[in-house]
């Protein structure tokens, strides 16, 4: 009976197992082997030892495309995850308020999440067009400078490359990508709303009796109680933003344009593998990316005991 159950179990998970071995485990192991090879996809891989990793190190040291991709990815990941946490919590808290039409607001906030990535990217390319885009139109109408968005190498965190020409334009292509990522905040919102619903009402009542205002209640009750989901969202958000590809590929003309300002690690990896036919080097890059994500995740887990309740 036990053996029969085992057979049945294996038969049931068989399709998944085949998919896992063929589509996940094999490419995973193969890419590790290829990272030590010179491989152009069209001929047999040729073992070159650590050459690809040495090349990565030298590119990193000389400020080549890999270092730029790393910097762009870090900028995108940190900014988008940071803003999504802040905006997600703010929206979630405001959506718990007892106001008329709350369900409608919740639906409106979640709606962008169901828009396909490609459609959303095309929409944002139109909205953020420096000349004809709606966003710049609104900025100009309230007396602010129009921004360069996807046609600019500027970034909010760094001064523009051409101060004279930019004339107050500080937001560039990377900031446009961050804005796009915030568009899909609805998924996080659902998690935050669920977490907020789990906060015991008694805590707020006790705080109110102690004379704590709304702000204090948020700081000393809501925020600490949300830390487990914040932690979850940060980890998942970081992994997703490091892997982000589709929208970046679309807005950057598939090349990381302009001037490599949207060249992220995943895009650089793709171009190296399938445009330059340098699969060995791309595999090495993928493994560096994998180790990087692992290290960041481990660090987050280790530090979480200090701030997650």
């Amino acid at each position: 009976m036990q053996r029969r159950e085992l057979q049945l179990g294996i038969a049931m998970i068989g399709p998944w197992l085949i998919g896992f071995f063929v589509l996940t485990l094999y490419p995973f192991c193969a890419s590790f082997y290829w990272s030590f090879c010179d491989y152009d996809l069209l001929s047999e891989p040729r073992w070159v030892g650590l050459s690809n990793y040495r090349r990565l190190a030298s590119e990193l040291a000389s400020g080549g495309p890999f270092s730029r991709a790393l910097a762009n990815t870090a900028y995108y990941a940190l900014t988008s995850v940071g803003l999504s946490v802040v905006l997600g919590i703010a929206l979630a808290v405001s959506l718990t308020w007892q106001v008329r039409g709350r369900a409608l607001y919740r639906m409106l906030c979640f709606l962008p999440t169901v828009v396909p990535t490609v459609a959303a990217a095309v929409l944002w390319m139109g909205l953020l067009d420096p000349q004809q885009g709606l966003v710049n139109g609104v900025l100009e109408s309230v007396g602010l400078s129009s921004q360069g968005w996807f046609q600019s190498t500027s970034a909010a965190a760094w001064p523009p490359a051409w101060p004279g020409d930019h004339a107050g334009r500080i937001l560039g292509s990377k900031d446009g990508l961050v804005l796009m990522s915030l568009w899909g905040i609805g998924n996080l919102l659902v998690i935050y709303l669920a977490a907020l619903a789990d906060v015991p009402k008694g805590l707020y009542e006790a705080a109110e009796l102690d004379g704590a205002g709304r702000l204090r209640q948020f700081r000393h009750i809501t925020l600490p109680m949300l830390t487990p989901v914040i932690f979850f969202n940060v980890v998942m958000g970081l992994i997703q933003s490091v892997q982000a590809f589709t929208q970046i590929y679309l807005v950057s003309d598939g090349q990381g344009d302009p001037a490599g300002s949207t060249l992220t690690l995943s895009l650089h990896l793709f171009l190296t593998a399938f445009k330059d036919l340098d699969m060995g080097y791309a595999s090495a890059m993928a493994w560096v990316l994998f180790v990087l994500v692992m290290l960041i995740t481990t660090w987050l887990f280790r530090t979480s005991r200090h701030w997650v309740i």
Binding site: T153, A161, D257, A259, G260, S261
Partner: peptide, 14 residues
């Protein structure tokens, strides 16, 4: 691609 990129570096980044 490299020539285009080089021109972009000059035009966009100075």
């Amino acid at each position: 691609h490299e020539v285009v990129q080089a021109a972009q570096e000059v035009l966009y980044r100075g």
